[in-house]
Write a protein that binds this DNA or RNA. Sequence first.
DNA 1: GTTGTTTTCACAAACGATTGTGTAAAGCGC
DNA 2: GCGCTTTACACAATCGTTTGTGAAAACAAC
Lengths: 351, 351
Amino acid sequence: MADLARELGVSMTTVSRALSDHFSIGPEMKLKVQKLAKKYNYQPNRMASALRKGQSKLLGIIVPYLEGRFFPKVVRGMETAASRAGYNVVICQSNEDLTHERRNIESLLSAQVAGILVSVSRTTDDFRHFEKVRGRGLPLVFFDRMMPGDALNAVVLDDREGGYLATRHLLAQGGRRVAHFGGLQQLTIYRNRYQGYRDALAEAGLPVEEELTYFGDNTEEAGAEAMRRWLALPNPPDAVFAAGDYAALGAMQEAERQGLVVPTDMAVGGFSNETFTPIAKPSITTVDQRCDEMGQAAVRLLLELIDAQAQGLDFASRQLVLRPELIIRESSQRLGRLSPTPEPLADAAVQ
Amino acid sequence: MADLARELGVSMTTVSRALSDHFSIGPEMKLKVQKLAKKYNYQPNRMASALRKGQSKLLGIIVPYLEGRFFPKVVRGMETAASRAGYNVVICQSNEDLTHERRNIESLLSAQVAGILVSVSRTTDDFRHFEKVRGRGLPLVFFDRMMPGDALNAVVLDDREGGYLATRHLLAQGGRRVAHFGGLQQLTIYRNRYQGYRDALAEAGLPVEEELTYFGDNTEEAGAEAMRRWLALPNPPDAVFAAGDYAALGAMQEAERQGLVVPTDMAVGGFSNETFTPIAKPSITTVDQRCDEMGQAAVRLLLELIDAQAQGLDFASRQLVLRPELIIRESSQRLGRLSPTPEPLADAAVQ
DNA sequence: GTTGTTTTCACAAACGATTGTGTAAAGCGC
DNA sequence: GCGCTTTACACAATCGTTTGTGAAAACAAC
């Protein structure tokens, strides 16, 4: 920067202000400076800038894990939106573990990130580390999995709607007794998918039968175990909506092992649109989570928070709810081909 | 820091040196300082430190994409190893695009990272942006996909060995005419897998027949297309080694569509151990790439480079080669169960 | 010509850590 | 107790930007 200032015969102040479009610099001076900066390919030192301004061009991201389809896609959306705004993202994985999550927060704080995007770990039942972030005045946006409370910013999927759509579809395909494999109920997302299931049953005038619900980890083994229990019942189900694709796969395979035909004897629906769901045989009906949109929306929200804060405005906290998309495949289709999406999709912002 | 210094009645110099274990500070003073720092939960400002030292605690990572199984796993390994050493990782995706890759490099340079880990994009045929990094004296480690040349640091898989193991296995299972679906040959990894295929054929005294090789993108469609061509031959193959799992899946499904039975009529082997390979029916034999090890090894190598450079030593460039693991599943097993790994695995460092 | 207003820019002090140099104090042998 | 080395610490400059303040120049109004 000093070189630029010398060459132009002005002070570093002027150069700095010209580059950041400060009002006190004349338009033709701005042009001269910017031209020369381009010529020398001058890149301001972000460390110095961050030190002085107390804020870096980094966004922190905490995800439970990076395997599977969901989080990589979300992260990709985030990276896209962030780099468009001149930010970089630093990624931490909590491994679904509270201790890791706390360490990640510390790590991001000490990396002086400008804001944090977090999807809460499954085992987290203590949220003081998040309060600490907000205490420091650092913008915080939850995505997909949020902490309880409503004075917070988040971008989530309408999981209830997803559960509702999937269950309604199974009923429409002739399901008389629809079972539900639910995820661990301490996570809001799984509670909401369960709620959607119940809403669809209620709408059809059916009761929620406890023996037709099973809660466990979203794994093939757990899904198979659930199916074994159901098939041992005197009056077993003829369809199952699983809150996760792995469980759906496990349940489906177990049903086939026991001689049932999917979808004729047992219709199956999952959740997440994992990579393997179109590949499995039969291909698995599932709910898509709009990953890319979620990532981009979360970053946009965070950047708005950062801006608002820089200008000293205060910002009403906001939750953005994305509508999921039901993807109908072979594992649930008993009644010939249907149009894949019965309703037009639109994002809804609530609050 | 000033608070600590005041409370202890010493200078900031002493506090700083005590915390960084400088020799000129007495042991009991070090202890006092460290205890107080812990008590106040003091976190040094990384921006200030980075500015002064000209080096941050950030490692840059460039991957072509984050979908699939491979890169997320590698990144996880990197994140683990980095955070153990007090570093954070910032991730960029090149989307297999040279322009993106260049921009990513710029972005990481301006983020003042301490070093860069990169897996080269498929379309990259110009490597000056990497030279620029080395020109700035910034440590650079390639993983999985490297640029040509040998005066560089890299951690790669022994792809030739993987191709060799898979092909030899298909031959051992009674394959008489083994076809090969190869990836785009401008990527070293795909050239090497092809070489392994040829080596195994040569060892068995078989010729490489041009009509039995097909090169294309690693997608289901391309795999299916290759299989269609092969099955139209007067003398079609009875086994296929694909350099990617998606192509293997597509080829397998196409063979089944045409009435063949896998593995009896057509044995199939893939590469990458994607998530769907154990789930597919039949489950797909494939080659595992030791993702986690690769990530950790790459970070370790990079940290060594950074250390060496900080001490002004020069560091002979080094390539680390990891041995892949053949995972035998249903799609290739004609001769009953075999032990899954015929040989003990050991990592080999060459050069 | 004087005063007032606006525009344009320079000075210098931050931001928070690191580090070369200088200098007391302590330890030792004689 | 002297000179010597070693140990333990403080001073102050430095990294490259940003920004509050103030001052010079340009311009308009009277």
